[in-house]
């Protein structure tokens, strides 16, 4: 009798021990892979950021992280745009502008953009760090015809769907409204942040 009542218990024990062993070994192996890849992922991220910073502010020779902690920027249409980082662009000892990394939400998730802003608050250049927009549609925001429109514009850029853009307007991409307006939101948010940084710097 005793052995009969004992059997299911030991069975459950055996099941759970085997399962835990498998889970434990798997977790260990994954941890090992993570130990190899984590520094590489971090290194690539930093390298990519450094390259993008250089690309949007070619005249600067060093970038100083401001340690921005102002939180998200709310855009004109009420959406949150996260600010991932702000750098002062320096040429020698002179500050020539700043770079802001923003990640507005596009069609396929966050689009990470670095925006270079000149000392007088105008867009110097933009660079997409990463995105997962639909290939062939949302990815059109990588075309120079689109992002080129932003160069030289100052805070409060408006997007239009058709017609000829006025002084501070850009044309969104038809069929990729969501991706292109996300880009627009990102640039505007970056300009807002840059304004506060540049303003503070002059005083």
């Amino acid at each position: 009798m005793a052995s009969l009542s004992k059997k299911p218990k030991s069975d459950i024990l055996r099941l759970s021990v085997t399962l835990c062993l498998i889970a434990g070994i798997t977790a260990l192996l994954v941890a090992a892979v993570n130990a190899v890849t984590a520094p590489e992922i971090a290194r690539r991220g930093e390298l990519k950021t450094a390259q993008s910073l250089k690309a949007v502010m070619p005249e600067a020779d060093s970038f100083e992280d401001c340690g921005y902690s102002g939180g998200d920027i709310t855009s004109a249409d009420g959406k949150q745009v996260p600010i991932d980082g702000v750098w002062l662009a320096k040429s020698g000892n002179e500050t020539v502008g700043c770079c802001v990394k923003v990640s507005p939400k596009g069609y396929g998730g966050a689009i990470e953009i670095i925006v270079g802003v000149t000392g007088d608050g105008k867009v110097a250049a933009t660079q997409i760090v990463s995105m997962s927009e639909t290939s062939g549609i949302g990815t059109k925001i990588q075309n120079p015809e689109f992002y080129g429109q932003f160069v030289g514009k100052s805070a409060g850029i408006a997007g239009i769907k058709g017609g000829t853009p006025l002084k501070n307007e850009v044309q969104t991409i038809s069929g990729a409204t969501k991706s292109s307006s996300a880009f627009l939101r990102g640039v505007n948010a970056a300009l807002t942040v840059a304004e506060s940084i540049n303003g503070g710097e002059q005083k």
Binding site: T26, L29, V30, V33, T37, A38, E40, I41
Partner: peptide
């Protein structure tokens, strides 16, 4: 899931 996580991490890195 273990193998998927490994390939996920490897792809993120390389």
């Amino acid at each position: 899931a273990g193998f998927v996580t490994m390939i996920d991490l490897l792809m993120q890195a390389f």
